[in-house]
Simulated scan of single mutants.
Amino acid sequence: MSSYVFGLSAALLGNIVIGTGQCMQKYGLNRLQREYENTRALHLEGGGGGSHSSTGASSSMYATAVDIRARGASVSQGSGGQGSPAAASPAKRPDGPRPRYTSTAWVCGLLLNYAGELFGNSVALSYLSASAVAPLGIVSVVVSVALASRFLGERITAQQRYGFGVISLGVFCVLLVAPRRSAAADAVQFVEVVAQSGVLRVFAGLYVAQAVLISLIRRGHRSLLMYVLVAAIFGSMNVMASKMLTMFVRLKLAFTGIPNPADVAFYGATGAATARPLVLGLTLPQVLAAACMALSVVGQESFRQQALGRYSAMEFQPVFFATYNVVATLTGLLLFRELDGLAHAAVFFSVFALGIGMVVYGSRFLQKARAVELPSHIRLHTGHMRPMGHHTKSQ
């Protein structure tokens, strides 16, 4: 029971760190956008004479000391006549915000995401089943929304609070029936299970499936389901590789008198005695697991961002979360055989489906699109607006 609590705590702390990182990334992106709007407003003021755009008015509220100095410099240069340097060679107008990797806040948030995965979820997977760790990823979303409300000025609505409650109940249902048996309690049993599960065949099959799906996407067969499947399979591969790598490390530290469990699982008892380290004391199976983790993280994030560029978060996130949990749970149970008989399997899958359904339903309320509330002095009154270039019948 203590190992279950420790694993649960590691997963919760890891997802809190990930949620904090996501909020920092959002903060960095907001700053890049404000910087772009300020720079664009300066170019419009400098090039448009006395005319001012609504963009400049709306972005002036974000002006800083640096912006004011830059604005003053552009005005002084513009008043110097045609012989001034500004008139001779005007600065190029930016086409968009700077790349996100140039933001310190965004990079720090990305590092927090990886730290939460490595030291939180990966450690938790060595104590808990993937069916318990994967649904806890929704905690990072809740933390990100809460921090954005506190520090970024985003308002939590009554619908979002309702979503939080539904999500909490769904996660509780999943944790209630998730396998609690610790695979590390019996080192020999875990090694035998991994050795007999055909893990190499499973990963080979997943890589073939990924190659087919990615090829179809590149040929133009783009749909929400295609992006979701690719990102979910990459996520499940990361879960399996993380669980095996952390379990092998834990077993090696706990049972120093036995050969490396990773080598025993892949080479057998005889071949494990002759296996030699390749990189930093890691043998070939451990290096392959680490490489698979890195590739899976990069692949999942890449296709997730591509999907979010084509579809709204409202469309993508609930479908991705449900698909990822189903794929990760099924592959984890297939490889590590953590269910105790048909009765346990029937109860688990019934409650698991109910819990994931509640999480998906609740997550839709976290991402409700909200209308932008403009300051009172620039609010638009639709009743007084007429389309440009058109006249009413009375005219």
Rank of each mutant, 00 (worst) to 15 (best):
M1V: 05
Y4D: 06
F6D: 05
L8T: 08
A10P: 01
A11T: 04
L12A: 08
L13R: 05
G14W: 05
G14E: 10
N15A: 08
G19R: 01
G21M: 00
Q22L: 04
Q22V: 01
C23A: 05
Q25M: 04
Q25H: 01
Y27P: 07
Y36F: 15
A41F: 07
H43A: 05
G47Y: 13
G48D: 10
G49F: 15
S51P: 12
H52M: 13
H52Q: 14
S53R: 03
S59P: 05
S59V: 07
I68T: 11
A70Q: 08
R71Y: 13
V75N: 09
G78Y: 05
S79L: 05
G83A: 06
G83R: 02
A86Y: 00
A91R: 00
R93T: 04
P94G: 09
P97I: 08
V107H: 05
L111M: 10
A124V: 14
S129C: 15
S129Q: 13
S131W: 14
A132F: 14
P135R: 07
S140N: 12
S149V: 11
G153H: 06
Q159D: 06
F164H: 02
V166Q: 00
S168E: 03
G170K: 00
V171D: 00
C173V: 08
L176M: 01
S182H: 04
F190Q: 01
E192I: 01
A195N: 08
F203K: 00
L206Y: 03
L206R: 01
Y207E: 02
I217W: 06
R218T: 12
Y227E: 03
V230H: 06
N238Q: 11
M244G: 11
M244F: 12
L245Y: 10
T246S: 09
M247F: 14
L253K: 14
F255K: 07
T256R: 15
G257Q: 13
G257L: 15
I258D: 12
D263Y: 14
G268Q: 15
T270P: 15
A273D: 15
T283Q: 12
L284T: 07
Q300A: 07
E301D: 12
S302N: 10
R304W: 10
A307C: 06
A307D: 07
G309D: 13
Y311R: 00
E315T: 03
Q317F: 09
T329H: 02
T329G: 09
T331M: 10
L333M: 12
L334D: 07
L334C: 13
R337V: 09
H344K: 06
V347S: 04
S350D: 03
G357D: 02
G357Q: 03
Y361D: 07
F365W: 08
Q367D: 06
V372Q: 12
H377P: 10
I378T: 10
L380W: 09
H381G: 11
H381A: 09
M388T: 10
M388I: 09
M388E: 08
M388V: 10
G389K: 00
T392K: 12
T392L: 14
S394E: 13
Q395R: 14
